[in-house]
Design a binder for these strands. Structure first.
Length: 175
DNA sequence: ACGATGATGAAC
DNA sequence: TTCATCATCGTA
């Protein structure tokens, strides 16, 4: 039994949604009809305007407006002029938060992941459903709470005390 | 350890 | 309109 994660799954506080995405399947359909499925094993939470590592800490701008949408849409942006970052927007309308999908069992690294799946800003603000060609499925793979490790987020040293918060979630395979 | 590479946002 | 910055990665 496979369920596509619905909008209601994402319309919850980001710190709750982020660890729940571990073990879920990221599914991408390419224009040529090929389907790619990767199991998410590394994510980070970005939590509102107060979070100095979150792009929305500078308020609503052209780029961050999508983070204020109700959960369930993609937030994709280009960083370092080269790499697209894939986030799923979470929470209620008006509260900017999102989960950065940093890695899967098959492909490590947020930049390598989007390159592998042909993800770019065309997907920004699109819903996570079959129509957009990018969504997340639950195949009831079990990730025990004990296997989940929390660490500070990567690459946000500029964010002061917020850089130290354990908003990165990874799970260690088996063991 | 460092350069590639371009959109973004804030300042001017 | 300029300019510093940046949720990375491959090469050295």
């Amino acid at each position: 039994m496979i369920d596509i994660l619905s909008q209601s799954f994402f319309r919850c506080p980001v710190l709750r949604v982020a660890p729940e995405l571990l073990g879920k399947i990221l599914v991408r359909t390419l224009p040529n009809g090929k389907v790619l499925k990767l199991r998410i094993n590394e994510v980070e939470a970005y939590d509102g305007e107060k979070d100095l590592a979150c792009h929305a800490s500078r308020g609503k701008t052209e780029r961050t407006v999508v983070m204020y949408e109700p959960g369930g849409v993609w937030y994709v942006y280009l960083v370092y002029g080269m790499y697209h970052m894939l986030n799923i927007v979470t929470g209620a309308a008006g509260y900017p938060s999102a989960v950065l999908i940093r890695g899967t069992e098959e492909v490590s690294g947020p930049g390598r992941l989007t390159k592998h799946l042909s993800i770019d800003t065309q997907l920004n603000a699109k819903k996570a459903d079959k129509q957009s060609g990018l969504w997340i499925e639950d195949d009831w793979y079990v990730v025990s709470a004990r296997a989940i490790q929390r660490t500070p987020r990567i690459g946000v040293d500029y964010a002061g005390t917020w850089a130290k918060k354990p908003y990165r979630f990874v799970y260690r395979k088996n063991k």
